[in-house]
């Protein structure tokens, strides 16, 4: 039953961004289940819970109160049971520093939040349809930042 859906989680403290995110998936013709969390603490509580369903792709905002995206990334990468989750950094900034740091820490892709809705839909479609097994093998610092 799970195979039919792509499980997606977004951790972002910004209500508008969560709204755009969900709207975009609603409009895309892909069967997804989207779950959102308001910050890193809620996200990690969920992931660490006994009965949680691990997402196929986790979208992580970097700048969040209480627990930042970087901290979440660190915890997730430390724990072997999360090893199959593809992690997409989803941030307003695309500073070299952030890109380099998250790449080294093991994130799979870096997405700079687009500034129009059409682009957002295109980006999310692209990311969700990536074959992660194949993609991760050819990953390097240059193609880590998603460019359309």
């Amino acid at each position: 039953m799970h195979e039919d859906y792509i499980n997606i989680i977004l951790a972002d403290d910004d209500e508008d961004d969560r709204l755009f995110f969900c709207d975009a998936f609603d409009e895309l013709k892909i069967t997804t289940r989207v779950k959102t969390f308001n910050d890193g603490v809620y996200l990690m509580d969920y992931l660490n819970a006994e009965d949680s369903v691990f997402p196929n792709i986790l979208f992580l905002d970097l700048n969040m109160p209480r627990k930042s995206g970087l901290e979440c990334l660190k915890e997730i990468k430390k724990n072997d049971k999360f090893k199959d989750i593809a992690i997409a950094i989803y941030s307003t900034s695309a500073s070299e520093e952030d890109i380099e740091k998250t790449f080294i820490m093991g994130a799979n892709i870096y997405i700079k939040k687009p500034n129009d809705f059409k682009t957002l839909k295109k980006v999310l479609e692209e990311v969700v349809t990536i074959n992660w097994q194949y993609y991760t093998n050819g990953l390097n610092k240059d193609n880590f930042l998603l460019r359309l």
Partner: peptide, 15 residues
């Protein structure tokens, strides 16, 4: 880079 861009991005997206 972050705080100024965020509201602007939202303006553009909502637009």
């Amino acid at each position: 880079s972050h705080d100024l861009q965020e509201p602007l991005r939202k303006i553009q997206t909502f637009l």
